[in-house]
């Protein structure tokens, strides 16, 4: 008997992981914004404004296409990598294709948190993904589906400005609804650009269980993005690196691409 659900990894690679190194963020989807310095004299923004600008940088395009290499680096330095292509429309619909490794051929469609479908090449069928699968690791990395499904923090999290230093705002978020894997999340946002620089996740015991570090801001076809995101569990020696191999925006991706029809067509 063949394993039934083992391949139901839900890869919901969030664009938020690759924080954009451009400023200021547009209010609406637009063409790739030009780099522009932040005016220092501006009044101190509220926590909500900081978060809004940060998310606009992450998701503020009509569509995005990313080529990503996900590398898992063990404490001894050994490494294994998986390639994937992520297509995103607005700030909710995503289509992810695994293009290497044992998951190659698997595709995941996220229309909302309640509507996730995965195409399983071994079974030649599309399967609806139940919500309980969201805490599964993605290909054994430090990322869970739940982490990567997170798009907009404003909706489900309470927010306050925890602290600030010369270069950064520190936003403290707590879940509006209990039951998730994290009881507290902290974002470090650059004061000058509102780029998401770090994110720290804490469990109920107050331990930091996951950490995202954005680095190596690179110009991709006129849009700056962090080329490297390092994800780690501070309690272990391993880490996961997400390297952005390519990034393009506003390619005119059609809504019809982000449908179950597309997921199963021609497979």
């Amino acid at each position: 008997m063949k394993s039934v659900p083992v391949l139901v990894f839900v890869l919901l690679v969030s664009a938020s992981a690759f924080a954009q190194e451009t400023a200021p963020p547009p209010e609406k989807p637009q063409e790739a914004p030009a780099e522009k310095p932040v005016e220092k004299a501006a009044p101190k923004p509220s926590a909500q404004e900081i978060l809004k600008k940060m998310e606009a940088l992450n998701n503020g395009f009509a569509d995005q296409k990313m080529e990503i290499r996900l590398s898992i680096i063990e404490g001894d330095g050994s490494r294994k990598s998986y390639d994937m292509t992520l297509l995103q429309k607005g700030d909710s619909k995503r289509l992810v294709h695994f293009t290497s490794g044992e998951l190659k051929g698997m595709s995941t469609l996220v229309e909302s948190r309640d509507s996730v479908h995965v195409y399983l090449p071994g079974f030649k069928k599309v399967r609806r993904v139940a919500a309980h699968n969201m805490n599964q690791s993605v290909a054994g990395s430090d990322l869970s589906s739940e982490d990567m499904a997170q798009v907009s923090w404003a909706t489900d999290w309470n927010l306050k400005l925890d602290k600030e230093d010369d270069s950064s705002y520190w936003l403290l978020l707590t879940p509006k609804q209990p039951g998730g894997s994290y009881t507290r999340v902290v974002h470090r946002v650059a004061k000058d650009s509102f780029v998401q620089q770090e994110t720290h996740y804490y469990n109920a015991a107050g331990e930091e269980v996951k950490r995202f570090i954005n680095s190596d801001v690179t110009d991709f076809h006129g849009v700056k993005r962090s080329k490297l995101i390092t994800v780690s569990d501070p309690r272990t020696k391993r880490r996961t690196e997400m390297e952005l191999k390519d990034f393009v925006v506003n390619q005119g991706l059609k809504d019809s691409l982000f449908t179950v029809r597309e997921l199963q067509w021609g497979k």
Binding site: S3, V6, S141
Partner: peptide, 10 residues
């Protein structure tokens, strides 16, 4: 069916 993962899903 029960599936148990160890060694970071390896």
């Amino acid at each position: 069916t029960a599936e148990l993962k160890f060694l970071n899903d390896a």
